[in-house]
């Protein structure tokens, strides 16, 4: 580097065209039918994407755009003409000639039963999405009676940032995926045991501080039922002060390192009560680290603080 170098003074010319990723072969279009209507969609699409592109609202619980579909909740199943069983819309790719029914009697029954199974075994009180599906599919979890096995268990509070209430866990695997290969690659939690006893667990159920957890909170970010929650949210809910109608969400950029993660600040009464990140931002894909997700306190209690960073 030297200041006498000519390019130091003159920006280089622009390339003849903007740089772009290597070209991918264009996806072939396939003809399918959805609920009797013909549709032409790219062959790389899943049934769910095809349905959504046609404005058909397909319920999902274990699916999230930023995670690999695990197709375990089965609430998104659809009927394919000629198939013995129903197919999960979230992971199944469309194929030419597919004849998809999203609202047949079999589909409605399967969705209703899945929701009844969950509703009769899991506390869905902080899962508004699941509750709305229960209404939509007229599921009646109460018809199994009160003497049924559930996943009811004590709340786990073993650190200052997270609360884990597995009475609310529908075992959607999202937290495991976010902690694992889909984002954080820390693998502090996994599914342990099997059958109805299957559960999300650290090794030997040790408390989080004794596990590999690095408190990125990405498990909380993807949890669809409130089983995993910011401790601050949990405490506000316990105190009856959590009020989403009085909250606003503002997108900004994390104040820490130079990666530039978008933070969605959820504020109530001029205080940050929760931090998330949008799924459709290429920088984060919805995932954050401990500082971005939890490191906002310094702006809240400024009178008590002093000193700054260089």
């Amino acid at each position: 580097m030297s200041t006498s170098d000519p390019i130091w003074f003159t920006p280089p010319p622009r390339p003849s065209r903007p740089p772009a990723p290597p070209e991918q072969p264009e996806a072939t279009q396939v003809d399918i039918r959805i609920d009797g209507q013909p549709a032409r969609v790219p062959g790389t699409m899943t049934i769910l994407e095809a349905c959504r592109s046609r404005g058909i609202d397909t319920p999902t619980l274990c699916y999230l755009e930023n995670l690999t579909p695990v197709n375990v909740c089965r609430v998104c199943v659809v009927e394919l003409a000629g198939a013995r069983t129903l197919a999960p819309a979230c992971s199944r790719k469309v194929e030419a000639g597919m004849d998809i029914q999203t609202n047949s009697d079999r589909v409605k029954l399967a969705r209703k039963m899945v929701l009844e199974f969950l509703g009769s075994s899991v506390d869905l009180s902080t899962a508004p999405q699941a509750q709305s599906y229960i209404k939509r599919y007229e599921a009646r979890p109460e018809r199994y009676g009160s003497d049924v096995e559930t996943v009811d268990q004590p709340v786990k509070i073993d650190n200052d940032l997270y609360v884990r209430d597995y009475s609310k866990c529908i075992l959607c695997y999202k937290c495991v995926e976010a902690c694992g290969t889909d984002a954080q690659n820390t693998f502090a939690i996994a599914v342990a045991a099997r059958g109805f006893d299957a559960r999300i667990s650290t090794e030997n159920d040790v408390p989080l501080p004794e596990s590999a957890c690095v408190y990125c909170g990405n498990c909380i970010g993807v949890c669809p039922t409130g089983a995993l929650m910011f401790k601050s949210e949990y405490e506000m809910r316990q105190a009856g002060t959590w009020d989403e109608t009085r909250q606003t969400k503002t997108d900004t950029i994390c104040p820490y390192c130079g990666v530039g993660c978008t933070l969605t600040l959820h504020t109530q009464d001029n205080r940050i009560v929760k931090v998330t990140s949008p799924l459709d931002v290429d920088v984060t894909h919805g995932h954050l680290c401990i500082k971005g997700r939890f490191g906002f306190e310094f702006v809240q209690n400024r009178e008590e603080n002093s000193g700054s960073d260089g």
């Binding site: 939890f294 490191g295 209690n301 000193g307």
Partner: peptide, 11 residues
């Protein structure tokens, strides 16, 4: 220098 981070309770 910890000014921002010391305010939150990192486990």
């Amino acid at each position: 220098t910890g000014v921002q981070t010391s305010a939150y309770p990192s486990p």
